[in-house]
Write a protein that binds this DNA or RNA. Sequence first.
DNA 1: CACACAACCTGCGAGC
DNA 2: TGCTCGCAGGTTGTGT
Length: 272
Amino acid sequence: MPELPEVETVRKALEKAVINKKIIDIYHGNKGLRFPFPYQFKQRVIGKTILKPRRIGKYCILPLNSKQKILLHLGMSGKVRILDKKPKLGNHDHMLINLEDEIYILLTDPRRFGFVDLIEGKERNNKFIKKLGPEALSSGFTGKYFYSLVKNKERNIKSILLDQSIVAGLGNIYVNEVLFITGISPKRKGKNISLRKCFNLVKNIKALLLSAIKEGGTTIKDHLQPDGKLGYFKIKLRVYGKTKSKCFICGFLIKEIKQLGRTSFYCGKCQS
DNA sequence: CACACAACCTGCGAGC
DNA sequence: TGCTCGCAGGTTGTGT
């Protein structure tokens, strides 16, 4: 599920519900997710207070009043729920943070590709954060910057955009969508993309992410429903998953290919 | 250095 | 109905 807009939706919900709340207790399984839970995680954060949640790319960061930060990545199937009473834990519930005032943060992740880390000290020194390029929505991610990285690359644009060390936050859905919007084939080599196209691409990436976040925002108010489900937005997809249906611009059939083991969807006429 | 690919897990839907 | 296969929104480590 989670690319940048989904993580932002989670961040906003957390900001609303858990800011300035003290951590009373933490449960986590021994099994671990993609990586084991931090060493003595519970002992290290219990009694601390959560400050304003932040996000970098697909990472959600919960700063504490101790200068520590809880780092959360949702992988492919991670979900966060905010509950107002203690839930009975299911098989795929891996972490439950019990806050004061009967607030609970539940992390569920069937595939266990997500993970949790605890940052002590400088965030930029964290092994995960320091690999990231500029955040997609930040002012540092510009057409000029992007062109400077892209212009010498043999790789195709699809893999460049998925590379979090070049730009942080895009995943398979949004890369497919934005390449369609910009009229660039996913097979096009980086070095064959003009400065002008890079400007367009960056502009379209930001606009697409912002509109997805905006749509996600409309359902956030439901975050304390009894079932605790966070409302994810449903953006209108133009090509993703649309194999063999008609391109809504030109009517050609949308094609599907594999790149880096992942599926790319594109219109052979509108994208080149 | 730049890039491709397998591996990590589980659930679900398509097809037989 | 029930089984097997392939595929899924991500990232790391290894190998060429």
